[in-house]
Design a protein around this nucleic acid. Structure first.
Length: 704
DNA sequence: GTAGGGTTAG
């Protein structure tokens, strides 16, 4: 993907300057001179005037290899490797010898977006023409293989080099950076120093991108930082910028900020963007935004990177700035960026994430007006539809992606499968599963997780288990899903067995694992185990319980009828109960039939979230059950006065590829009469068979 | 006229 060069400003010589110099040269007939002509070709190419450059080239009486090489590097620098390759082919056809300059330039082009077959042809030319010992040609070859992830070839070329400089080493290290293989990179770095080649910016900057928040990467980062300082590279922009991001990546944003604060006078635009990226890596949206505001205040140029970061982390409105989305969208338009794909994608992401008014409409509008959509544009919208419960639209879009040959990756599959789960449409879910199998993506964790969830939701936990077995089980993602699946199906013991297995396999649990585990305990009635697991989070696994962990535990106690212990759990929480925790407690009050406690919790909840319909619904329902009609009427009136409507529950059924939705008491379906007729028949049969089996059914439960 | 390196979007 390379849309960025379209709007990155580079300082270019202006065309008029070049052409007037060219005219003067023509008049004084200097143009016959090969050296002067080469110079004009170069100057025309620098200001992207290919036609003029080629005209000079075509009209030259005598071309030398520099003339050819200048044109080739012109195409390479303009990100046009296919034309560069075309020129090389003409050169060969006309019998001009390729030289080290040719190989250096054209291999760079192929590495950045050409075909590896061309690269291999050039490799054999290099061998035939005896350029294997030329450090430029060989290093470019190493880099080319590295960019195509062909480590063995890169290794072999590198191993045969007589003389190697830092560029050669960096190209080889780059091959391992491409695989995220930090250990090999470090080994190479050590060998490099042992051979007496000092690490430079090209060594450290890419190395630092591999550091993540595990084990002792932070200590490693400090060592690298020491080396960087020793080699005098700490203010070299590529290294400085990579340092800022690397500290954030291995968990220490304070060090990022320290480096940034100490870099005044050395910063470029990427330094600022890196600080913003560093904050966002640690979910510090506010700090990121403040950095952005500081950029604007100091009149520092912003670019596409700045806006895509800021947009994707922003919500349309927040307490500090309710019109934030509109302002950012306006700024983007003012900069002329709105049709730039990464920016449009980030804008869609902002609208998709903002809940409240229907921002999905705005996201779709941006999508529609984005001229060149990439697979991220499609995925952002697909994910938005899926997350916002617009499942049918999501599946339609997925279908369109499939027809339009948009590449479907794991993100697309998991979003589409989530929508299948929400609709409980097994038929479509299976079709999408088949597609995932074709592309081999079923083993990716998020796809597997979505499959597990889909089959569980459609009632086939055995197929959840199959999908689990087919997945890579490296992180908690798929484990959590399978534990949830069995818990959802009331097989708490099996779910807990998976947890034990997960521990045996030494997969680190996260707070979601414990939500799943507590859920399993809840469904198996294992109250004491559930409480034990909550305690073990901190004591055994050093995971700080979050509100959802407490909410699950409260649910567990509530279902077991132990409201008092549920209240105790809330008292022991290290933070104030949020709406989710209180709602769970309110539901527990209902299942225990404790109206006094329910009123107390209800009042607390009304302070937190007065617009929530379920508080009113639960309370009025409880009053109704206790036949306290007056109080129930008061609740109903309150609801009416506050303008709160009960959000009706919906059911779906899928028939012949079409999803039909139903409300309670819903007669709007065109075949409503037939449907009810069929249901009455079914009910009758159930009643007959129940009578035969001696089960008495309360008609009330089955009223349609 | 030649080779390597940092920041963005799901």
């Amino acid at each position: 993907m390379r849309p960025l060069h379209l709007f990155i400003e580079t300082s270019r010589p202006s065309l008029p300057t070049v052409s007037s110099a060219h005219c003067r040269a023509l008049k004084s007939s200097l143009i016959a001179d090969t050296y002067t002509s080469n110079n004009f070709i170069h100057r025309y190419l620098k200001c992207s005037h290919f036609s003029d450059a080629l005209k000079v080239f075509d009209e030259m009486p005598r071309r030398d290899s520099a003339s050819w090489n200048t044109v080739i590097s012109g195409y390479v620098n303009a990100d046009d490797p296919s034309n560069a390759w075309g020129v090389v082919k003409s050169m060969k056809r006309l019998g001009f010898p390729l030289d080290a300059y040719t190989f250096g330039s054209v291999l760079k082009g192929i590495a950045s977006g050409g075909s590896v077959v061309c690269g291999q042809q050039l490799h054999s030319d290099i061998v035939k023409l005896g350029f294997t010992d030329n450090v430029y040609s060989a290093s470019a070859l190493v880099d080319m293989y590295a960019k195509f992830f062909m480590v063995e070839e890169a290794d072999r070329v590198f191993g045969n080099m007589k003389h190697r400089n830092s560029v050669s080493w960096n190209a080889l290290i780059g091959a391992y950076v491409g695989f995220g293989d930090l250990r090999s990179c470090i080994e190479l770095f050590v060998s490099m120093e042992r051979e007496g080649v000092r690490g430079d910016g090209g060594t450290f900057a890419p190395l630092l991108t591999l550091l993540v928040e595990v084990d002792d990467d932070y200590q490693l980062m400090r060592q690298f930082h020491g080396k960087i300082t020793k080699n005098g590279l700490e203010y070299e922009n590529t290294v400085l910028n990579a340092t800022i991001v690397a500290y954030a990546d291995c968990g220490c944003i304070r060090d990022s900020k320290k480096v940034f604060d100490g870099s005044n006078g050395y910063r470029d635009i990427v330094t600022w963007n890196s600080m913003i990226a560093a904050y966002l890596e640690r979910d510090l949206e506010r700090d990121a935004f403040d950095t952005f505001v500081e950029m604007i205040r100091r009149k520092i140029d912003t670019d596409a990177y700045t806006y895509s970061s800021i947009l994707s982390s922003a919500l349309v409105g927040d307490a500090r700035n309710p019109r934030l989305g509109a302002s950012l969208h306006g700024l983007v338009m003012k900069m002329g960026y709105e049709k730039v794909t990464p920016i449009a994608n980030a804008m869609m992401s902002m609208y998709v994430k903002s809940d409240g008014d229907d921002y999905m409409v705005d996201a779709l509008r941006v999508f529609r007006y984005t001229p060149s959509k990439d697979h991220i544009s499609w995925n952002t919208i697909l994910n938005g539809l899926s997350q916002n419960g617009l499942s049918e639209e999501a599946l339609k879009l997925f279908h369109q992606m499939h027809n339009d040959h948009v590449p479907i990756d794991q993100f697309a599959f998991s979003a589409a499968l989530k929508s299948c789960s929400d609709l409980a449409t097994l038929h479509l879910g299976k079709q999408i599963h088949a597609l995932a199998l074709q592309s081999g993506l079923q083993e990716k964790e998020y796809v597997a997780s979505a499959l597990i969830f889909m089959y569980s939701k459609c009632g086939i936990v055995e197929d959840s288990c199959k999908s689990f077995e087919e997945s890579r089980k490296l992180s908690s993602v798929t484990w959590n899903s399978i534990i949830f699946a069995y818990a959802q199906h009331g097989q708490g013991k099996t779910a807990l067995n998976f947890f034990t297995l997960m521990m045996d396999e030494q997969v680190s649990p996260d707070h979601i694992t414990f939500v799943a585990v507590t859920n399993a305990c809840s469904h198996a009635g294992l109250v004491d185990d559930g409480l034990k697991y909550l305690k073990s989070m901190k004591t055994m696994y050093s995971i700080e319980p979050r509100p959802e962990n407490y909410a699950c535990t409260i649910d567990l106690l509530g279902r077991a009828g132990d409201l008092n212990r549920a209240k105790e759990v809330i008292k022991e929480m290290p933070f104030k109960p949020d709406a989710m925790v209180l709602k769970t407690l309110l539901a527990s009050c209902r299942s225990c039939g404790d109206i006094e406690s329910a009123m107390e919790v209800g009042n607390q909840l009304l302070e937190l979230d007065p617009g929530d319909h379920c508080i009113y619904v639960i309370l009025s329902d409880m009053y109704g059950n206790l036949k306290r009609w007056d109080e129930r009427a008061v609740m109903k009136r309150l609801m009416k006065n506050e303008g709160i409507k009960k959000v009706p529950g919906l059911s779906w059924i899928e028939v012949k590829n079409k999803v039909h939705g139903f409300n309670a008491d819903d007669r709007s379906h065109p075949q409503s009469t037939d449907i009810h007729e069929a249901l009455r028949g079914l009910l009758f049969e159930i009643r007959v068979s129940d009578d035969e089996m001696g089960i008495s059914f309360d008609d009330q439960d089955l009223t349609l």
